[in-house]
Design a protein around this nucleic acid. Sequence first.
DNA 1: CAGCCTCGAGTTCC
DNA 2: CTCGAGGCTG
Length: 705
Amino acid sequence: MSDADIENLSEAEAKAELARLASVLAAANQAYHGADAPEISDAAYDALKRRNAAIEARFAALKRADSPSEQVGAAPSEGFAKVRHAVRMLSLGNAFEGEEVREFTARVAKFLGLDEAALSFTAEPKIDGLSLSLRYENGQLVQAATRGDGETGENVTANARTIGSIPHRLAGAPEVLEVRGEVYMRHADFAALNAAQEARGAKTFANPRNAAAGSLRQLDSEITRTRPLAFFAYAWGEVSEPLAATQIEAIQRLKDWGFETNPLTKLCAGAEELIAHYEAIGTARPNLPYDIDGVVYKVNDLALQGRLGFRSTTPRWAIAHKFAAELAWTRLEAIDIQVGRTGALSPVARLVPVTVGGVVVSNATLHNEDYIAGRDNKGAAIRGGKDIRVGDLVQVYRAGDVIPKIADVDLAERPKGAVPFAFPTLCPECGSEAIREEGDAVRRCTGGLICPAQAVEKLKHFVSRKAFDIDGLGAKQIEMFYADDQLPIREPADIFTLARRDATNLTKLKNREGWGARSAEKLFEAIEEKRKIGFARLLFALGIRHVGEQAGKLFANYYLSWDNFLRAVRAAEDESSAAWAELLSIDGVGEVVARALVTAFAQAHERESIARLVQELEIEDAEAVTRDSPVAGKTLVFTGTLEKMSRAEAKARAESLGAKVSGSVSAKTDLLIAGPGAGSKAKKAAELGIKTIDEDGWIALVEGL
DNA sequence: CAGCCTCGAGTTCC
DNA sequence: CTCGAGGCTG
């Protein structure tokens, strides 16, 4: 049966169909892996589930209490395939004031060692939609991917092909061309879509961006086809040949190929012109047919963009100048305290729901004790020093258009008898003492893993996307398993013994409420898949304080093998040892990080817990970063004035070639690059017999790499 | 030792 | 996305 009939179902028919689907799916769950062969194929099963979800989406009120879509079991990984971007899709740094724009242009000039007058920039409206990367090979659209986390997105090619302003074929395009831009919905189209949705009793969208996102992520591209989406091209990813010499010319080429580009894109000479164009776009904003949330500035010269390069998540050559956020007043009903995986007590404001920027907000972060009291981390007054009290009328905005925060308090509206918020000194979850270290902003529960909140949050971190990323084992399931007495998960190792323990259990997982044989089986398979894990991911997953994603990679790249690393960390327990000194010598590792790491492995219970885990795993060592360059693995020091590039640029370049850049000359230094005016460092290098070259020598060395 | 940059840890809503 | 803090640079 096709799903095209869903649009025409009457309520009674829909109700009957939902009942039928619930029983068919339940039976399929029982039959699967039972004594008999499965009654239906995986594909048919998935199709039925989708049909069920589609009917529920249309007739929300008819959703059954035993709805198959509510099963807690491993979520079948239906949906979109993942796509790895050939070139990362980054986000932009933000500016809110004109002054920050001036700082941006000054920073760019300084980094390049150029005069600001020599620079030009493009300015274009920042469309409030969702970014999309279109890959063309030999002029044919072969793939469309959402941004995702920047490295991996979702393959939405079929849906992208239904968007009118996305060409399927490009004449005279390079062999490989990734065009990037924004999918968005015009105001008029958004209003019409919502009216149509309402007429059919379907859910309406809160704002054009959500409508665009929801429409692009339809599993059925025929639904996407009916949605009025549009696309502005403004950037590119992988290209087999350079598009142009400047940003503005590159945009023109995209336009020539048939893409829509934003007509308000303008070339500007410097910060003042950029700000003037920002004001002009701000003035035009109410009359634009689509939502924008700021103006994007980019260095026009593409060669300079290349030299500027990237920081960890943002390019140095571009910035988003945002418009002031929308504000709304509402009442603060309560302040709750959440406990995070490190024990941090985080206050959250519970608000009378209010619409801010097209989204209903009912919670807002309050950061910490001082923030509620009206002070920043240096003790200076924020919000004019006004504290926040339960019952207050507060002004809410969404920082970066996302995270709700409290901007102001109306003291005239403060209820009589309202008292300053008393921040708890005991953990609300386990009753342990919550202590605020001298100089720290946060108060932390001292309960450690005795505290159920900390234990659960730590496990959630362990299975999170950048850690073990186990399909079907998300936050909800972790909470469920943590509380389960028959088949508990209380520490990471328990995840990998789950299937074994289930096999010897009387009440098998598949017989539990909300679980079927299929979902249990899928969960076990997903766990099995992750037994093989990279060193860096494993270390990050352990959730040791101060050891995050980057530190995980850092240690993996340095020590290469887990055994090697373990040995080093154990040896470093003695802070007078060579192992401790070596730990501190790693670029990016200071005493705080090193101590946190050593302490974690020094505690018997934690070490044993990790040992139980590791014995279940197959750890993949990191690969030595011996990139093919003459400076790979070498330690370099720059000194004196560099004339052809800035110090920051030289450092970034050296690191990209696998070198380590240090600030001082020592016996470990392999090469000194000395510009004019080099003093003590050059002298010391000479004494130590370290090879020294000048800037031209350096450029000759790395040129063409 | 101050100021900058990056990272870690916290957060909301869909 | 933002704040706070760790680590490095000047």
